[in-house]
Design a protein around this nucleic acid. Structure first.
Lengths: 205, 205
DNA sequence: GATACAAGTCAACGACGGTTGACCAGGAAC
DNA sequence: GTTCCTGGTCAACCGTCGTTGACTTGTATC
């Protein structure tokens, strides 16, 4: 999309634009499927600049991945300890995040890339499992990992695969079930705040 | 790996070899990251043959995906209705399946590919969710979808991402939790066959 | 204003990937 | 034996991609 006239010289801003565009592209497709020329076209800049701004395609990818996922840190995502709140998280995005890039899609689409796996593994451990495990009673690590894994699977089904049985129409059926799942992991029993089938409920005391 | 001497002429067998090798390659990396020359090398055949045997790379990919996932049909995987059995499935592979290709890894690594998404969506619906939903009481579709999604997330964490908090050492902590999750989805309450904390258990009658 | 450096463009290189067409060999049908 | 089809090889084409180096232009400093 180089239109002929030169763009204003602002190295810092251009670098940021490149990083954002790269993250978006890598999130839409995979590492191998996105070309530097695509990113350059998005920013409106020459390919050579994209390359030189971050040294290599791989370095750009690593920085984009780290940058896009970290601000979405699960610390806030997991600041709740209610199964119902976690279930809501399965359907809604973080409101207070600039949602230019879906970090989950970026992670999923990056799994096939050679160098990305260790990075993703580290991010999952430090940003998702770690913070949650600290505030859960034993076995905290297992609970946190399981919550993250289930949330991951649900979001992939919903947002990446777009499984039709998981669209918004199914939400009334699904959200209570999901709340029960997380509540079971957290507290060892389904969500008490609702009663789908009273005969299955434990007596209050 | 063309060694000079010609290979015995058996079109049917060679086609099968190509398909298997393709599925394995696509499962290890992504669609874009694997080349026809890699597959040809595995089989010990010329690139042109690989191409012509299935018309194009994309057609080969589609056939490999469909072939690798369908035999692993979840009909048997979901022939159980016990949360504990499903939890075991989260850790163990189908014993009665020739485990040349991990269909899950193939699906995950194919998500980024342009043409693969509708196919994967269809496979998930017809092979995983559909069969299970039939034998569950309402809301069967929601329950089946949620089970598939959680199983998907758990297996990705374990086998693809290889999250360390999910390796075999963690199995004693994890498996009961997972059993509770599936039991909660299936029956609305945690697994009755164990008692982690008796005070949380429902009375038998 | 001269200078120096950063920001950006341009054109090309080398490698690789999917695809194609010409060619060769085995084997069955006639 | 000839013919013909299929399985298979070989070599090349063409596009794309990451990368590089030379060049240009804006901007800040002295």
């Amino acid at each position: 999309m180089t239109t002929g006239e030169r763009r204003p010289r602002d190295g810092r801003a251009t670098r940021d634009l490149i990083l954002t565009a790269a993250a978006r592209r890598f999130a839409q497709r995979s590492y191998e499927a996105t070309g530097l020329r695509d990113i350059a076209c998005d920013v409106g800049v020459d390919v050579a600049l994209v390359h030189r701004a971050y040294g290599s395609k791989e370095k750009l990818f690593v920085e984009a991945l780290a940058h896009a996922v970290r601000p979405a840190s699960a610390v806030e995502m997991f600041s709740t300890e209610s199964g119902a709140d976690l279930a809501r998280r399965a359907f809604e995005d973080d409101p207070e995040r600039e949602t230019v890039v879906d970090p989950l899609a970026l992670m999923v689409h990056s799994i096939a890339s050679p160098g990305a796996l260790p990075l993703i593994r580290r991010i999952v451990a430090s940003e998702f499992i770690g913070p949650l495990a600290e505030r859960l009673e034993a076995p905290g690590a297992a609970k946190a990992t399981l919550i993250a894994a289930c949330l991951f699977g649900i979001r992939i089904f919903r947002d990446v695969l777009e499984v039709e049985a998981m669209n918004d129409d199914a939400r009334p059926d699904l959200e209570p079930l999901i709340a029960d799942v997380f509540s079971t992991i957290l507290f060892g029993r389904p969500d008490r705040s609702r009663s789908s089938d009273p005969t299955n409920e434990c007596p209050a005391a």
